[in-house]
Each structure stands twice: as C-alpha cells, then as structure tokens.
Design a protein around this nucleic acid. Structure first.
Length: 376
RNA sequence: GGGAGUGUUCCCGAGCGGUCAAAGGGGGCAGACUGUAAAUCUGUUGCCGUACGGCUACGGUGGUUCGAACCCACCCGCUCCCA
C-alpha cells in the first residue's frame, strides 16, 4: 500500500508498505539480476549500503537455476537471505534486449536462451507462474519494451497487446494466489506504461491500465536511446494520468541527474544497472561528479573515492589503493567499487527524501542534478 | 675449442629488398556503458606538425643496391648442441 506523505510541486515523498517491510520513497532498487549483486555483494552487504529493495530478474532465474528450484528452496528471500522487499522484473525487457531470433505473438514471445540457445516461450501466464515461484514482494507485468525509434503504428498495436497481456497477468496471478500456488500469497503486481515517444499512445495506454487498479504503476520503454529531454517530456506527459495514490516506478533509470529530474516530475521508484556496471568498470560516483579510478592521476591519491562519503569503502580505502586493485584485476576492486556506488545511490535517494521532508527538494535538485552527472 | 641459431618499437613477437613507423598479443593512456548475453566493448600508443609532410628508428660498424629491419663482412651480446 502506498502512503503519500508530502509533495513539493510534482515531487512526492511517500512510503510503500509491503509484507517484507516499508520502502521509504523516493527509492532506488539495487539490481541483483541473477539473485546476486554483480561484483560480489551478498544480502549481508546490502544492509551496509542502505539498500531498501532488491531487484531480481524472472528470465534469468527461470533459466538458471530454474524458478522451481527457487520455489523448492523456499523462494527468493530464503534463497538469497535478503529479508527486505524484492521486486522481480518480468522478462519483458529481455525480449527487447535479446533482439535476435525473437518472435512476438498474441500468446507470448518465443526467443532464444542467451545461455544455451534453446527456444524459450514466455507469455503473461508463464511470467506470472515464474514470479509466483520466485516469491518476490512485487511482480512486474509481462510487457513488450518497444525499441527506439519505433513506428507509431507498431507502438500502437504493441500497446494494445500489452494491455491484454496485463489483464492476463492480473488474472493469472490472482488464480495462482487463490490456489495457494504463490510462494508469497501477498505478492503485488505493477503494470507498465508503454507507447514509445508518442504522447497520444502514452496517455491512452496509461488511462487504460490505471483502470485495472494495480498495486503500482511503472513507466517502461524509456532510456532506450532517446534523448534525455525526450524522456523527461514523456514522463511529464504521462504523470498527470498516473493514479496519485499508487507508487510510480520509472524502469531502468538512471544517472543521478536523471533520478533527481524524474523525482521532480513525480516518480517514486527507480532501478538501474549503471551504478554497479560503472563501478565494475572503475567509474565511481562522487558528490563532485564521476571519476575514472583507472586514470593515472589517482596513482598516489591518498583521498577516499568521495570526500563527503561515509560508506565503508570511503571510510577505509584510498583512491590509490582502489586504482591499484583495478589495474591488477583484483576482484576486490569491483566489490568495493560496487559497494561505494550503490551506497552513493541509496544515499542520494535518502538525501532527496530528507530534502522533500524539509521542503527544499527543488534547491537540492538544482544543486546536484547536473553536477553529479559531470565527469571529473 | 668446434658447430648451429639468434638480436625488431615499453615487453613478447611477426616481418625475409621498395606498398614498414613495422602484423598480432601484452602493458600504458583515454573513452563508452540507463527494467545487466556486459570483470564487457571502443579508440590510441616513436618524435615534431592541425594536415600534406618532415625527422629518428629494427645490437654495432662498414659494404652491396636507385632503394636495406630484410643481402654481405667483421665486431659485440645472448641461446643451444658437440668436445
């Protein structure tokens, strides 16, 4: 259940209550695609980096180890030892990103496994069955993330199908819960807005799915190559049609600046692979902008990654040491980098919440939006 | 003592008369990454100049040739084999 506490213009400060705990929003979800944060963080580490929600992926876990294995092991919470909220993505994005050899039909999508190449079929029912087996706190609807740029006619027909798929997701998850087949009997379902960059499709689609009275609503299909300004415009167009009393999730976004700008436009929830991936590649967030720890200038730098950061990494290690770990290909470098970047993101959202609480989010946004995305 | 090899740009290593500032790795330097097929991918790496180009380079010194990293002679250094 979403509780709206306070607003500042379009920006919202809220709480999302779930059986696995309350999420203070706006919030950032830490991506653990295959039930592990890449770079070597476990559920125990997540406590140290202020993580509120973990995100796992239906498609990946279906392939490996298999959702039935996870179910038999007691669900994702027991499996990973993370007891907080978990959101599972539906596999819709993989249909989009694993572009080769896919076939989209009314029933669902057939595509090839990226692991062994075998044909996989996934439709709304399959996605719900898998997510019910995983036992996540929140299941995402099975959608099609249309590639960018898209033809209006194609996006329109895709939207119509995504609505039908959403209805089927709702029906199927209801059935699974009613029949006691869901590991988490309180599993929630979020719908996903699509419509590419076409305002009319975005609005019409949002209105249609809002009627289904789901537990939350996402904006999908953004940050897939369109200009950032275009992304912001689409959010502004859709936002007025999103239910006020439901949580809003912008899927796959983004940079610190993207997040602050999207909060200002009414978004509550985010997830992105960037902080972890950038960290694995030696790009670290600081309160002055982004640094590439591999750069020669850090060879003898005694300062922490970010001066104002109090994460376990910044409290203990120098840039010089981190640079060495990266140059020497020590996995510790990645682990520490990922810890820092995720702590940074979780702290960024924490600061944003504090700013909202105190009615100074606008100045907070102005101070950091461009700065944090800049490169040093 | 006799014989057979070998010496290339930061390193390893290709090259066997012109199209060679020299393949390919590694290393170095820098860049990309937005619901993760991603510990991945890209660029660059003799000096000077924006560029045309110029200069210095393939152990050393001479030589053959219009032209040499490549051919010849000697010298130096390594490696291996036989005594």
């Amino acid at each position: 259940m979403y509780e709206l506490i306070k607003t500042e213009h379009a920006a919202r400060r809220g709480r999302f209550h779930t059986v696995h705990g309350t999420i203070e929003t706006p919030a950032f979800m830490n991506v653990a695609t295959a039930a592990a944060i890449k770079g070597g963080l476990s559920a125990f580490d997540l406590k140290d980096i202020k993580c509120q929600v973990m995100l796992c992926n239906t498609y990946h876990l279906h392939l490996r180890p298999g959702d039935e294995v996870v179910r038999d092991m007691g669900g994702l919470h027991k499996f990973t030892r993370w007891d907080g909220p978990i959101l599972t993505d539906s596999g819709g994005f993989q249909v989009f990103s694993l572009a080769s050899l896919r076939k989209i039909k009314e029933e669902g999508v057939t595509f090839n496994s990226h692991i062994d190449g075998r044909r996989i079929f996934m439709g709304p029912e399959e996605s719900m069955q898998i997510q019910a087996n995983l036992g996540s706190t929140i299941a995402m609807a099975f959608d099609e993330c249309v590639k960018n740029p898209a033809e209006h006619a194609y996006a329109q027909q895709s939207c119509a199908r995504t609505v039908r798929w959403l209805q089927r997701c709702k029906t199927e998850l209801g059935r699974l819960k009613d029949e006691g087949l869901a590991v988490n009997p309180d599993q929630l379902l979020f719908g996903i807005n699509q419509g590419s960059c076409f305002d009319d499709l975005r609005v019409a689609h949002m209105k249609e799915i809002a009627d289904l009275d789901l537990d939350g609503y996402s904006i999908g299909g953004l940050a897939v190559g369109e200009p950032t300004e275009e992304m912001y415009r689409v959010i502004e167009v859709v936002e007025p049609h999103m239910p006020q009393n439901k949580i809003r999730y912008l899927m796959g976004v983004g940079t610190p600046g993207n997040i602050l700008e999207s909060i200002a436009r009414g978004v509550d929830l985010f997830d992105c692979v960037m902080p972890a991936r950038n960290a694995r590649h030696g790009h670290f967030n600081t309160w002055q902008g982004i640094i590439n720890i591999r750069n020669a200038k850090y060879e003898r730098d005694e300062s922490p990654i970010s001066q104002e950061c109090d994460c376990p990494v910044c409290r203990n290690f120098t840039r010089s040491y981190l640079r060495h770990l990266f140059k020497a290909d020590e996995i510790l470098g990645m682990r520490l980098g990922v810890m820092h970047n995720l702590y940074f993101y979780n702290t960024l959202l924490e600061k944003a919440r504090a700013a909202l609480d105190e009615g100074r989010f606008e100045s907070f946004r102005m101070q950091y939006s461009a700065l944090l995305d800049s490169r040093i």
